[in-house]
Amino acid sequence: MEKASHLSVILDLSPTQWHLSAQSSNQYPLSIHSFLSQLLAFLNAHIASKHENTLAVFGAFPGKSVMLYSSTDPVADDVPPADANSYSSFKVVDFTIVRSIMNEFDALGNLDEEPPCALVGALTKALCCKSISAHFHSPNAVEDPAVLPDPRILILSVSPDLSTSYIPIMNSIFSAQKLKVTIDVCKVYGPDAVFLQQAAHLTGGSYIFLERRDALLQYLTMSFLSPPALRQVLAVPKQDKIDFRAACFCHKNIVDVGFVCSVCLSSNHILFYVVKLWFTYMCTVFCQPVPVCSTCR
């Protein structure tokens, strides 16, 4: 008998990216409305698969991150009363999530320029959330029925990688690894996200790039619904290729062979002094000023 499990879902809700995703010039356009309806069906499936299952949903909006729903919170008062045709737990989840997302979108207003999505904030919040951090606060309380084993985080990403958030995102990934939290990533739109690929690889989750975006729900239920313990039996798809190359911190180029400052000083820069690969394995161009690490002078 499988045990109950905790799932935290992080939604990347960048208005620009979702607008681009819905455009009919794409091969398989996916609007946020159809995305949400498919997502809610998936969340309902998670709740329904076991009565004790818990759920938390976080939203990464431009410049801020918000907890949209948590099953451990008391139910809000203004949820419409249950009717005969719907299961009340499903209704509470659907209503709360949709309402919070709409509130946040309304609060965004008309921005001239969209700040980058606060994916890091949402990820750290998901880690701080009691269901996950409880393992750190009281490592002996494994028998506590409120603390479920094998928590996992599912990131539904549409934005491209943000190179400025590299360090915080890696820090979150390492802490997830330490807390034994599995991070799954579903790349709904946009190019492959290298950081999230590494997140999934390091924590033992799966990274899936959506090829047929009209079949989102099928991807979600087939790959992400089963808890980590069951996945070995089910042979869930994993990504094959992982990019382990680092980005140089002067030009943000991805490099094969770089120069790393051996000793580093804490300031706002990072340690790569990188040489672009000019010809086959011949390093030529130093970024300037030459080999002095700006970080440690």
């Binding site: 094959d240 290729k241 992982i242 990019d243 382990f244 190359r245 680092a246 490099v255 094969d256 062979v257 770089g258 120069f259 790393v260 400052c261 051996s262 000793v263 000083l265 002094y273 080999p291 002095v292 690490c293 440690c296 002078r297």
Partner: peptide, 17 residues
């Protein structure tokens, strides 16, 4: 300039199973 020993490092490509 006391520091700034730069070390050459390579970032590998992982081959899948």
């Amino acid at each position: 300039n006391p520091a700034a020993d730069l070390m050459m490092m390579g970032f590998p490509t992982r081959l899948p199973d």
